[in-house]
């Protein structure tokens, strides 16, 4: 598996760290089902997954990657909102 960083180009998997499913963070500050949902529950799809990866030993940018979890095929990657180094 290789990932493409929009800033550095296509790079080896070793340079990246998986940072979790790309989900929308709840607005409120108090614990409730929305936070339980966000932190714990997952669609966990066998197929297309939207996820964050950090280019940790490269430019440190956080990427939003779309990837097929059945084949590891990378379908797209872009800078995550606010994720530029």
């Amino acid at each position: 598996m290789r990932l493409t960083c929009p800033l550095c180009g296509e790079r080896d998997l070793r340079e990246f760290t998986y940072r979790g499913a790309a989900l929308t963070r709840p607005e409120g500050e108090t614990w409730g089902d929305d936070w339980h949902d966000y932190i714990h529950l997952r669609d966990n799809p066998a197929g297309e997954n939207r996820e964050y990866w950090a280019h940790s030993t490269g430019c440190a940018a956080v990427l939003l990657v779309t990837r097929d979890t059945r084949t590891h095929e990378v379908l797209g990657s872009a800078l995550a909102k606010g994720g530029g180094a």
Binding site: M1, D12, L13, R14, T17, Y18, A21, N44, A46, N49, E51, R67, T69, R70, T71, H72
Partner: peptide, 13 residues
């Protein structure tokens, strides 16, 4: 391997 997968095979790193 530390990323979600259903491939039943991992990567070289």
């Amino acid at each position: 391997d530390m990323y979600p997968s259903y491939a039943q095979r991992g990567n070289l790193p």
